[in-house]
Design a protein around this nucleic acid. Structure first.
Length: 377
DNA sequence: AATACCGGCGAGT
DNA sequence: TCATACTCGCCGGTATT
């Protein structure tokens, strides 16, 4: 191999990140073209009262007016009260899933190493296809963008880089309808001047902790004393923080098996206790159905309680025999809630706002082929 | 000492 | 009351072996 082909090992991959723009709201725009030039707000109504709940996402017209993910629906309506064209729609997750599945197939068809990380995001490692050649990787990226636009009439943003982290930083840097390439040589110059909070994986808490240590910029984090970082963030997270500041990420593009899932609902009213069966039975049966349709058992069953102070409390139990039974899940969850309330009953004013069930420690159900005893020998 | 389990926290879509 | 519904990962403490 000639000298000019030599690459640092860490620079030898090419990864494409695909992000579907304002996905839920765009799904609704495509379903009803007449709302495309209006503010569109996708709402999760909690059902406690008129317009209680939160905004899941909003299109860019709504965002430009200050409506963003997570704000109360009532606040969004207040912000848009003078815009009679504004559209508020309940989240239709089933529909978005169907659209997502079709789009993910398009992305997956463009490369052999594919990883979907959420309903609207995916990575493609095109090292094999592009031979670490960024021009060829760009062509793959363009063809993904065109494919999604042609077959689903949907805009997306594309980011290309030497690993998932850099591709993600690239895609996030230009949205919506972006197409951004951070070639290996350009990574430092892009990352260095950013505040650390802009790095994927560093949120408000970590940013504030770093700031208190005198580290505000990525360039500073990139050279920070490893010992100091480990002392403050632990032996795993500490080194990782320095790595992401340097644009390093060895994690492969691979489809990961699901590790856990949960169902949670908002109670009609905050309560010190509630009718376990009424609230938990639907959650249990949903979870049981999902286990069953995925041919999985779970060995860990847990509860989630969100208090009136919006603090998250959890309890969980490992059971001796894996199960997918809705009745079993309901029974354990009820016991955990009962014990939780018993434990917390002395806490003054503690009430539960939302209640949920989580299952984890999943294992595939091995269904032995009928009549082939030899398989067990 | 190594591993499992548990509850809290943080980050992200 | 204004504050959804998820998933993933790490941390530290404690229990188990």
């Amino acid at each position: 191999m000639s000298e000019s082909c030599q690459l640092a090992a860490e620079d030898s991959r090419v990864v494409i990140a695909v992000d579907l723009d304002y996905f839920y709201a765009q799904c609704e725009e495509v379903r009803d073209l007449s709302i495309k030039n209006k503010p569109v707000v996708i709402c999760v109504f909690s059902g406690r009262s008129e317009d209680s709940g939160a905004v899941s996402t909003a299109n860019y017209i709504a965002r430009s007016l200050g409506v963003k993910s997570g704000i109360p629906i009532r606040l969004a309506k207040r912000i848009l009260r003078e815009d009679s064209t504004a559209v508020f729609l309940p989240m239709d997750i089933e529909y978005y899933r169907i659209v997502s599945e079709r789009i993910m197939e398009i992305i997956q068809s463009k490369g052999r190493k594919f990883e979907q990380t959420s309903i609207d995001e995916a990575y493609l490692d095109v090292t094999t296809e592009a031979g670490a050649d960024y021009e060829r990787a760009e062509m793959v990226g363009r063809s993904i963008k065109e494919g999604i636009l042609t077959s689903e009439k949907m805009a997306c943003s594309i980011g290309i880089g030497k690993n998932k982290l850099v591709a993600k930083m690239a895609v996030d840097s230009h949205k919506p309808n972006g197409f951004t390439v951070f070639s290996p040589g350009k990574v430092r110059s892009f990352l260095d001047p950013l505040p650390v909070g802009k790095l994927f994986g560093i949120g408000p808490k970590t940013e504030e902790k770093l700031r208190a240590m005198g580290i505000a910029l990525v360039s500073e984090l990139a050279k920070a004393n490893p010992k100091t970082l480990s002392d403050h963030f632990g032996k795993n997270l500490g080194p990782t923080l320095r790595e992401i500041a340097n644009g390093e990420d060895n994690s492969p593009v691979v489809e990961k098996p699901i590790e856990q899932f949960s169902r949670i609902i908002t109670l009609k009213k905050d309560a010190q206790t509630f009718d376990f069966k009424d609230v938990l039975a639907p959650l249990s049966s949903d979870l049981s159905e999902k286990l069953s349709s995925s041919n999985l058992n779970c060995k860990s069953i847990g509860i989630i309680a969100i208090t009136n102070q919006l603090k998250i409390k959890t309890r969980s139990r490992t059971i001796p025999f894996p199960t997918q039974s809705g009745d079993e899940i309901l029974k354990i969850a009820s016991e955990l809630f009962f014990a939780f309330f018993d434990e917390e009953k002395s806490v003054d004013g503690l009430k539960i706002r939302r209640a949920g069930i989580r299952i984890a420690d999943l294992s595939p159900i091995t269904t032995p082929k009928s009549g082939t005893l030899e398989d067990f020998v």
